[in-house]
Amino acid sequence: MTLEEKLIHLRKEKGITQLELAEAVEVSRQAVSKWESGSATPSTEKLLGLSELYGVSVDYLLHDCDLKAGEIEPLPQKAGDDLKTSHGGTGKAAVRWFAIIVGFLILIILILIGVLYSNKSREEPIRIDEMAGEEVTGVPKIEFDLEW
């Protein structure tokens, strides 16, 4: 059952009109109509209100499932839905955490490589009086008269 179908089913089961639902969740009747036709989706705040009003979870509203004897049963997996969690939701949070951890490990490895490389390339400083070179001679001495 899609979100739109669930919204229609739950509203009719509760025996209320679109206008009464709109007043209960503080939106316009047109907004409820758009939700039920699938041309708009309720905000998170409104989904919370709908779940409280109907006595169902937001998870139930958002995920495709059928009603059987008042219980929620997930629909069979579709092609491409290979990341499912045990509660029937998608594993987007798990994938996000995995990506964060992998990124963090890569950052640590790059920092370690940088530290090791910088230690190998560091040489002892050479004092200026130990530098080999030619003596500079014949440079004229310039004097400045600072009196005005």
Rank of each mutant, 00 (worst) to 15 (best):
E143T: 14
V102A: 07
K141G: 14
E147G: 11
L67Q: 15
E147P: 01
Q77A: 15
S33C: 02
S43Q: 06
V25G: 02
E130C: 09
T85F: 01
P76A: 02
S33L: 03
P42E: 02
L48V: 15
L107I: 00
I126K: 10
G49S: 10
L75M: 04
S121E: 14
K14F: 05
E71T: 11
K34C: 01
Y117H: 09
G88L: 03
E23P: 05
T90S: 15
W35E: 03
M1F: 05
L3S: 03
S39Q: 09
E52D: 14
L47S: 03
C65L: 06
I16Q: 07
P74K: 03
D64Y: 06
L7H: 08
K141A: 14
E135Y: 15
E26H: 08
L83K: 01
T41F: 10
R11E: 07
K68C: 02
K14D: 04
Q18M: 15
L112Y: 02
D59M: 15
A93D: 05
D59G: 11
E134W: 13
L21E: 10
Y60F: 13
N119G: 10
H9P: 06
E73H: 15
E5Y: 05
E143I: 12
E73Y: 15
K92R: 10
G103I: 02
L62C: 08
L110K: 04
E123I: 13
R127M: 13
P76C: 00
E23T: 12
Q77H: 09
E124K: 15
A31M: 10
G38S: 06
I142N: 01
W148Q: 15
V95Q: 05
H63N: 13
L107S: 10
H87D: 13
I100T: 04
T17R: 11
E147Y: 08
K92H: 12
R29K: 14
T17Q: 14
L48K: 10
K12V: 09
V115T: 05
G88C: 05
T2P: 10
S28H: 02
V27E: 02
S33N: 08
V95L: 14
A99G: 03
L21W: 03
K120L: 12
I126S: 08
V139A: 15
T2Y: 08
V139M: 11
G89E: 11
I16D: 11
D129R: 13
W35N: 03
V25I: 14
S121W: 12
G133I: 00
A94G: 07
E143M: 09
E143A: 06
W97A: 03
G15I: 11
V102D: 01
C65Y: 07
L146C: 14
I109P: 00
V95P: 02
I108L: 01
L112D: 04
S33Q: 06
K6I: 05
Y117P: 02
L62M: 13
V115H: 00
E134L: 13
K141P: 08
E135F: 04
